[in-house]
């Protein structure tokens, strides 16, 4: 038995906005009978270009129906630009959460929304050049990449829960793992919240203490923070580092890299003149 929230049950038993809008401004169909779930989304705009009405027809389990219904409720009253910002997480949140194994239902909603907006704009699909990774469920590399990025997924099983990819024959598991590895090594540019100067200084100190110094000490070296000016971190090398010819490589490739990853991508590490 699935642990559905009361809201999922309510939106399954009494779904809002079932049906199809005649002469819609945007329409999309995603999923298939073979996959076990499918969603047809239609919407209509008012004179201010806001979504006046949205309707769905869904073939699928309770959470697919509830996610579709939630999506139509969420986007009503939104502009196209606002609607484009709706994520699968927003749909899941609206329902008070979904079981992990059912997150793909919220992803289906997001996909339908994007496709319907593309249809409205008459633009070619954004994800041209996408390659099918999972043959069983027809999931592309772009879809997997996005699910991994937006939901911070780390295992093939997660990806299957969110996109269905890999849930069939299993032949694509290696390819999915590669995508996960690739996405997770991307620098997380916009993921970090903005830090105040004080927070940033504290985070730099902590990061050096926890992540950097132990490695350096392992090799008999050390660094000391001399000053932090904006994004410039001025350090002095100590111990083995101070005499090591490769110390500036260590500073750039290790110290700076770690700080970029863990604090801010704009950090620059400089060595105080000896």
């Amino acid at each position: 038995m699935w642990e559905y929230t009361d809201k999922v049950k309510e939106y399954f038993l009494n779904p809002r906005n079932v049906g199809e809008i005649e002469n819609p401004d945007g329409v999309a169909e995603v999923g298939s009978l073979a996959c076990g779930d499918a969603l047809k989304l239609t919407f209509k705009l008012d004179e201010n270009k806001k979504i006046k009405d949205a309707k769905f027809k869904t073939f699928g389990c309770a959470s697919a129906i509830a996610s579709s219904s939630a999506l139509t409720e969420i986007i009503k009253g939104m502009t196209i630009e606002e609607a484009l910002k709706v994520t699968n997480q927003d749909i899941a949140k609206y329902l008070g959460g979904l079981p992990d194994e059912k997150m793909h239902c919220s992803v289906m909603g997001k996909q339908a929304l994007e496709k319907a907006i593309e249809n409205y704009r008459g633009a070619p699909p954004l994800e041209t050049g996408a390659k099918i990774i999972c043959e069983c469920f027809g999931v592309t590399d772009k879809e997997i990449e996005r699910a991994v990025r937006e939901n911070n997924l780390s295992t093939v099983e997660d990806v299957t829960n969110y996109t269905k990819a890999g849930g069939g024959c299993g032949n694509c598991h290696d390819a999915i793992q590669q995508i996960i590895d690739q996405v997770r090594t991307e620098p997380k540019t916009d993921a970090k919240p903005k830090l105040t100067n004080i927070q940033k200084i504290r985070l730099i100190e902590e990061t050096i203490e926890r992540e950097i110094r132990p490695s350096l000490k392992h090799d008999g070296g050390d660094i000391e923070i001399i000053d932090i000016i904006g994004n410039r971190v001025i350090v002095a090398t100590r111990g083995a580092c101070s005499t090591c010819k490769a110390s500036d490589i260590t500073l750039k490739n290790f110290v700076e890299q770690r700080l970029k990853e863990l604090v801010s991508p704009d950090i620059v590490v400089e060595e105080v003149s000896k």
Partner: peptide, 28 residues
Amino acid sequence: EGEAILLLMNELGICASSGSACTSGSLQ
């Protein structure tokens, strides 16, 4: 889809099971 059928049956107190993917926890 089977799970949706089962949950509506459940509302009426009728217990059965399904071979659908959604009830199995797998996707097939």
